[in-house]
């Protein structure tokens, strides 16, 4: 059985606080706490997601990919 494909939240082109608001909304709806990835193009905007993640019990990992940034959200506990 293959693992379900990880959801990708594409916030490229969004100005802050757009991405933060979208991610917050997604976190509140994501009851199963399945890991997901946020795809953005402006690292400073993405850095503000760290606090949001911590508050909702998630950890984040940044990875650069071809000029874009992937922020992997993993639930803590």
């Amino acid at each position: 059985m293959t693992a379900p494909k990880e959801r990708i939240l594409d916030v490229r082109g969004d100005l802050c606080p757009g991405p933060a608001l979208r991610v917050e909304e997604f976190l509140e709806q994501n009851r199963e706490r399945a890991p997901f990835t946020v795809l953005g193009d402006h690292r400073p905007t993405l850095e503000s997601l760290e606090l949001l993640a911590a508050r909702h019990g998630w950890s984040v990992e940044f990875e650069e990919e071809g000029g874009d940034w992937k922020v992997r959200f993993r639930p803590i506990g």
Partner: peptide
């Protein structure tokens, strides 16, 4: 990332004080 806008806005919107 010294943004006056985020300094004020994120206090209210995200409870982010940094």
């Amino acid at each position: 990332r010294f943004c006056f806008a985020s300094a004020f806005r994120d206090l209210f919107l995200l409870s982010d004080r940094r």
